[in-house]
């Protein structure tokens, strides 16, 4: 049924009568939206064209309440600036076409995204250092991007460099206010702590990916990152927010202290400073790492509420809601208590 409707949709978009859609499968990951992969084939100028697509459809309920057109527009805008992203094709805010709003983008084949595979599959061992360098370099490129010149000022910039932290504290405190189903003494205390210990003002307001980490990029076995994914939380803010998010313990998948399981912290900072021109200030990283853990806990709270209110039957939402304790542990460590 979905396959037939996608076929009809593509026929209209491509302007070809006989579009054939095949291999439609739902793929894991990207928990904030349903992700589907499919192949399409159609005749064009006497030739047979075949292409792989990914469809990202709004779910019934999600970990995040975000606008899919924001993600689409940003990915489309950054593509021409040295940031690898899948090519964006169509955005549909009309929920009538495929039951819920969605967008369609290019499928990048021959790549891996799962952190388990990227970090534990022996194919990637020889290229880990190269992969780590690309990981840092692309982050620096995102932060170097002229967001005004790229038409991204619709994202809404903080009033000044010092307001970046306040805006994020308020944003995530509002999520906890809205979605917490039970008392959250650690998160509440952390918000108070963050207000008393703000970071230095941002050196400059930049485009912040806001979920830049191992597990959110597509890489091949040559160590090339061919697509940065999951831009749902993108906004304008402090570059240290992204640096700190990448450093967070939940993404140190191998259980050691290496950032993202890829690179030592000092090396990560050094290369980022060289590539971006920004200074990494440990005091700022501590603040943003703390905020990142609180933010992740808030995201889990949203998923838990969705599940408990019956808006989703996803076992992932139930499961993640039961994993906030370790984030609290990290939050208290970072507070130094």
């Amino acid at each position: 049924m979905l396959q037939q409707r996608i076929q009809e949709y593509l026929s209209a978009k491509i302007g070809a009568d006989d579009v054939a859609v095949s291999n439609l499968v739902r793929i894991p990951g990207g928990a904030s939206r349903e992700t589907w992969s499919f192949d399409a084939r159609w005749p064009e100028n006497g030739m047979e064209v075949e292409r792989g697509f990914v469809l990202r459809r709004d779910p019934d309920a999600s970990l995040l309440e975000t606008e899919r057109d924001l993600e689409f527009r940003v990915m489309d805008a950054v593509a021409g600036h040295g940031v690898p992203v899948p090519k964006m094709y169509w955005l549909e805010s009309d929920g009538g076409l495929l039951d819920r709003p969605f967008f369609v983008m290019e499928r990048i084949d021959g790549c891996e995204t799962s952190p388990t595979q990227v970090l534990m599959d022996p194919r990637f061992f020889p290229v880990r250092a190269k992969l780590a360098e690309h990981f840092v370099d692309i982050l620096a490129r995102i932060h170097a991007l002229d967001w005004r010149g790229s038409g991204l000022d619709f994202l809404g910039a903080p009033t000044d460099e010092a307001a970046c932290a306040t805006m994020e504290i308020e944003k995530w405190e509002a999520v906890v206010d809205r979605d917490a189903l039970e008392p959250q003494p650690v998160l509440r205390a952390a918000f108070r702590w963050m207000r008393r210990h703000p970071p230095p003002p941002a050196e400059r307001i930049v485009l912040v990916h806001a979920d830049y980490r191992t597990g959110n990029f597509l890489c091949d076995s040559d160590g090339e990152i061919r697509g940065v994914l999951d831009w749902e939380m993108v906004h304008l803010g402090d570059p240290m927010e992204d640096v700190a998010w990448a450093c967070m313990r939940p993404w140190r998948w191998l259980g050691d202290e290496n950032i993202g399981g890829l690179i030592q912290r000092e090396q990560f900072y050094k290369r980022y400073e060289e590539e971006s021109g920004f200074s990494v200030i440990p005091e700022a990283i501590r603040f943003w790492e703390l905020l990142g853990n609180v933010k992740l806990a808030a995201i889990f709270l949203t998923g838990a509420r969705s599940y408990c209110e019956g808006r989703t039957r996803s076992p992932m939402m139930a499961f993640l809601g039961r994993n906030i304790a370790r984030l609290e542990l990290e939050v208290m460590d970072l507070m130094g208590v």
Binding site: W251, R326, L329
Partner: peptide, 14 residues
């Protein structure tokens, strides 16, 4: 309290 129980992170990141 936060260190109690089992989390999927206990076999990876944590």
């Amino acid at each position: 309290v936060a260190a109690r129980g089992w989390s999927f992170w206990d076999v990876s990141s944590f």
